[in-house]
Write a protein that binds this DNA or RNA. Structure first.
Lengths: 143, 143
DNA sequence: AAGTCTATGATTAGCCA
DNA sequence: GTGGCTAATCATAGACT
């Protein structure tokens, strides 16, 4: 990582970039597994290659972690909001380790609505797809 | 890492475990950033410490990647299913890089239903929380 | 495309501040 | 709980298969 000598910038050559992507993705997954094992934590990694292919790893499972994340973000207490810092490129979200209750304030008026409404929309669509899928499965194999 | 010499197993000492968790989490985020920068990919990492605290990083944003992941999983084509391999501890999901169309078969009869029904349940709950939250925001600050 | 090998240098466990 | 330091270990770019 961050092999400072190996400039961390976009690799132009497509083949090379993909090779690096593959190698680093493997390394990332490996590290995640180690973190999970050593610290008895839960974690998930999701990556999308430029080609749009998805690669995900998670413990206990990707879905489990994702759902937990969504639940934590959408309704930790239905009023309690975790600090969110987005900086165009990066986005780091963290809660306090202890209870040094940090700023539970968030620009609800400006951003909250927009984001939540979008989330709502996204989930509504998602739900429909899942329901449709279930229907399809039921009609195909109702064992 | 997998510092084979430093046995990759659960660290018993709580303080030590947390220190390791913090350090490795930072390293994981760093690696993720590098992957994103070098390969022009999208990625997200979500971790939960034992204490239940959430730490997430994502590019362009955690939510963006998560939504994309969910969308890809719940309805890539509404009938097309990506290979899923779960092994109790780990779970790796991957699509083919090219079009060497691999096994689009999945144990729909045994597992599909259960998982999808659970997803459906989860999303229904999520949606309710979000709607409630939006209602709360509206009633509190309808600017 | 994916695995191997090697040199290089990045990561980190442990200790101390 | 975070940050610096050091020694030890590990990841990976590049070349080759």
């Amino acid at each position: 990582m961050v092999r400072t000598k190996v400039e961390i910038k976009r690799i132009e050559d497509k083949a090379k970039r993909h090779t690096t992507f593959t190698k680093r993705r493997q390394g990332l997954f490996k590290k995640t597994k180690e973190l999970v094992k050593r610290c008895d934590a839960e974690a998930a990694v999701i990556t999308f290659s430029l080609a749009g292919n998805i690669f995900a790893f998670g413990h206990p499972s990707v879905d489990n972690v994702v759902n937990r994340y969504i639940a934590a973000m959408s309704g930790p207490e239905l009023g309690e909001v975790v600090p969110v810092h987005e900086e165009a490129e990066d986005a780091v979200i963290g809660t306090n380790e202890d209870e040094e209750t940090l700023g539970l304030e968030v620009p609800l008026d400006d951003m909250g609505m927009t984001e939540l409404e979008e989330l709502d929309r996204t989930m509504t669509e998602m739900k429909k797809k899942v329901v449709d899928k279930i229907d399809g499965i039921i009609s195909c194999s109702k064992n």
